[in-house]
Simulated assay, not measured.
Amino acid sequence: MSTQKNNFLFLVYLAGLSIIGFLATDMYLPAFDTMKQDLNTSKSTIGASLTLFLGGYSIAQLLWGPIADKYGKPKAILTGLSIFAISSLFIYFTSNVNVLLALRLVQAIGVCAAAVCWQALVIERYPSDQTNKVFASIMPLVALSPALAPLLGVYLLQHFGWRSIFISLAIIAALLMLYTLRLKSPKKQANTDDATEQEPVSYLSILKSQKYLGNVMIYAFCSGAFFAWLTGSPFFLKELGYNESQIGFSFVPQTIAFLIGGYGYRVLSSKMDGRKLIPGLMITFTLCVVALLLLAVFTTPTLVILLIPFCLMALVNGACYPIVVAEALKPFAANSGKAAALQNTLQLGVCFLTSAAVSLFSHKALLATTIVMASTIVFVFIGYKLSLKSK
């Protein structure tokens, strides 16, 4: 019973590490207007605080990968979350918007440690045959952040002011740090299948692994299609005549679909090899994206018609992510920090490019969104072909 309790608490801990970075982006979004007035600045400047955070969050992961592998995941987490918590506390006291911008960048650099290390801890602490199931338990929770974090932010904003949001983030970081202090270094890498993998490797060496690169490409470009929709949907749904509340509601079914995909695969993971599911998932992904493109080109679709293929695509992504992430990281058990950092940076980079492409052509939002989504298909299948390699 004690073992089961400890395992459950560790899963909760990993989930906390996985979402704290997304909480730092989503919780304060409802406070933009209040912050603009309180700090006597412009909307674009407050918006820049999000841009800086996302930029730092993407690039700084490459910093924490080697640190996590050399000094251990617990030390990296404690250092990174300390930086994040302290900068969050400083934001509470700041009245200068330029200081806020600098602190948001520091926040991002610190919280990257959690983003890198939670995935590395799964590879390090669980046997190979359990990693897919663990990833499937945690990754769907990330989809809840855009839906629930702003609601929590609204509550804090209305009752305690916008600064309380950053105090809350510091408290969450402190709780995660307390649990981190309980972690002991593993006696043996749970996923080390080959003694040669004990040697440190460079980012370039990791990229030379076709199996790794292929799985990361699937993860990154499926995510890129998803982010293209998230970027374009507020624009094209407005063009189709939907109001803000209807647009906001449209995020609910896709979140549910993502959760069903993730937890549906979790149920299947103990009964069949996830790699055997990938071809069917990729074909379904392709059909969904092509259907959205055809709807954009030949019809004036309704929200419901658009959501049918997109929610199915979200379900596919929810099932696919745990499989390809686990398969990418398993060969690098002794260098899981670097492997996870590189994977996350590449994924976020692709998402940035697809999002930027949609924004650039937002005057024809629906067509631009579906074309960008369709452009990811070829890269997904290239990734699948590479992922079949033995190394």
Rank of each mutant, 00 (worst) to 15 (best):
M177C: 11
L277E: 12
L281I: 10
F352W: 15
V122C: 02
K211F: 06
S128Q: 13
S18P: 05
F10E: 10
T79F: 10
A326K: 04
G55H: 05
L366I: 15
G16D: 06
L348H: 06
C311G: 05
N6E: 15
Q343D: 09
K70H: 11
S336G: 11
I138D: 06
C288G: 14
P66I: 03
S168E: 09
V267P: 03
P309C: 11
S355W: 04
T34L: 14
L52T: 13
A190S: 07
N344D: 13
E124A: 11
L353N: 13
S223Q: 11
S269L: 06
V378Y: 05
I59P: 12
I19R: 04
L281P: 00
V216R: 02
V372K: 02
A341E: 06
R104W: 07
F221D: 04
F10D: 06
T131M: 12
P279Y: 12
W118R: 05
G21P: 03
L156C: 08
Y265L: 05
I165L: 03
T369E: 02
F258P: 03
V216Y: 03
A341Q: 08
Y203K: 03
P150G: 01
A333Y: 02
I77V: 08
E327H: 07
T345L: 07
L295T: 07
A314K: 04
P301W: 06
Q198N: 07
I77K: 02
K238P: 04
P322G: 05
F249E: 04
V325Q: 01
L367M: 15
L303Y: 00
L141T: 00
Y203D: 03
G264P: 00
K211V: 13
P234F: 00
L39C: 04
P127S: 09
K188F: 05
I377Q: 07
K75A: 13
